[in-house]
Structure formats: structure tokens, C-alpha cells
Amino acid sequence: MNLIVIFFLFAYFGCLCLSGGSSLLQFYIDELVVARQWMTLEGLGNLMAISQVTPGPIGVNLATFLGYTQGGFWGGLLATVGLLTPSYILMSLAVKSYTKWHDSRFVRSLMYTLKPMTLALVATALFAALGMSVFTDQIPFDYWTGMVEKYEGNFGICWEMTPLFIFAIVALWKKKLSIMSVIFISAGIGAAIAAVMGPASA
């Protein structure tokens, strides 16, 4: 039963992940962390960190990893197959009718609103990533705007991580270092900071 859920859940993600999977993280947060509570946000962040530094495209790595944690070997397999099946069907159809697809007024009108919406999901995923790195907790937008009355989180700035954040942005923006080097350097600095600050900081 669980395996069937995994397959269709990832097929659903596969249908909706536009712009090459950049909005996928927001779907994982919403569906796997918030709605189904299969893992914590930090847990998802850790799986993503490992997927980023292991060989293979990060999207496939993360899908396999998420599937494995829920359903073992078959869970990993079905999550990967589920995620890639929609694009296999849609991409084959698109290449077959490429000229029609490319010039299609309908497809272009779809992209007109899909692109900004996808970007919004990239932005919210970025907020989530900030909430588990340079901030000590998730950014409480709903509390700040008065959507919820009571705030029980622990939001603050994690000062020791801000220089690393700025370093990562500058290195990636100026293309001085590859993504891989930035990630490994950040892992090293993160470990060093933890070692200096001692076990209590965690």
C-alpha cells in the first residue's frame, strides 16, 4: 500500500516540477514534511545535503533517498520511476510535435504565468532553507503579519553562519568556485564552527 502511495506521490511531483525541478523542494516540504509528516524539515535538509554531494543528478538522488527512507529498496525505486515517468511521456510527445509545441500559442500562454509561479515556489523553498541555516528557525511570516496570534518558534539570526552564507553567494555568483567545492568548503567550515563552539551549540 505504502509503495503505491510513494509511486503516485512522486508521479504527481513529476507532473508539477517545472523549470527543471527547481520548485520541487517546496512540494517536498508541503507534502512530505507538513502534510504527511514523514520527516522533519531538518531531516529533509540533511537528505538534500547528501544528495547534493553524491554522484548523479541531485533530483534523482533526492527522490531515491526520500523513497528509500519510506519504503526501503522498492520505495527508492518506485519514487525514482514515479518522478521520471511523467516527463518520459510528456517529453516524448513534445519532441515528436516539436514545431507545433514550440510555436503553440497555448503553451506560450501557459508558460507566461507558470514561470513566475515556479519562481515563487523557488523563493518559498529558499525561505525554508534560510530557516535552517542562517536563521535559528523558520521565518514566521504568518506571525509577523498577524495571521496567527501566538508564536512558539525560536526565530533569530544564527550569526556564525552568516559569513559562510555570504561567502557561498559571492563564490557562486562570481563563478569563482564550482558548486561542489563551495559545498565541501561549507561542510568543512560548518564542522569547524561546531568543533570550536562545542556540543552545547547544537
Partner: peptide, 11 residues
């Protein structure tokens, strides 16, 4: 700590 570092880089 290493994971926090990688998450910062990912942000």
C-alpha cells in the same frame, strides 16, 4: 555542524 554548513551553502 557540517550539515548546517552544507544547508547554508544550499541556501
Amino acid at each position: 555542524g557540517a550539515f548546517t554548513g552544507v544547508r547554508t551553502a544550499m541556501a
